[in-house]
Amino acid sequence: MNERIRLIIADEKKCIGCRACTSVCPEGIIHFSEEGGMRNIQFPGSCTLNCELCALNCPENAIMFLLREESNIEENIEGKLGGKLEGEKKAGENRVLLPDRIISLKLMPCRKCGATFATLKEIEKVRKAISEKVPLPSGGDFWMELCPGCRRGTFREKEAKTLLMTRKF
C-alpha cells in the first residue's frame, strides 16, 4: 500500500472554478465539465503523486493536502473546512479514501449571445481586481457581462464605424 496517498481537500467556499488545477495537473485527475449552466469541478478523494502543482497554482489557495497517516483526519478536515463533511463522514471508520468531491459553480451567460463563459465567482473576482486598479464609474465595466467573442465583436463594430466617419471627407 502506498504510504504517500494524500487527500486532496478543496475548499468549496474559496474555489472560484477557474480550472487552473485541471489544466496544471500532470496526471489529469482533476476533471471539469459544464452542463445546465453549472461548472462542475471533480476532485479525486486522494492523490498518489508527489506534487502540489494544483495547490500552488490555485489563485485562491483553495486546495490543501493531508497525508493519510495523519491521525484523526476527519477532525483535521473539519477543522480546516469548518465542519462541512457530513456526507463523507458516514462512510465509516475503516474508510481510507474520501470519495470524489464535486464542486458546482454557477455559470454566467453572455448578455449578447447567451452562451455561458465564466463562473459568477470568477467575474466577481475580476471585477473587484479591476475596480481596485482603475476606479470605473458604475456600468463602466460593461464588457464583463460579455463573452470574449462578443467583446471582440463589439470592438470590431466600433472600429468599423470610425471608418465610416473618415469616409465622409
Binding site: 487552473a20 470568477e122 467573442g149
Partner: peptide
C-alpha cells in the same frame, strides 16, 4: 497558472487560453 482570469478582464477579448 493558467487560471484565465486575465481573459475575463480584457475588454477586447484579445487573449486566448490554450494549453
Amino acid at each position: 497558472t493558467g487560471c484565465g482570469l486575465c481573459i475575463l478582464a480584457c475588454p477586447f477579448g484579445a487573449a486566448v487560453l490554450k494549453g
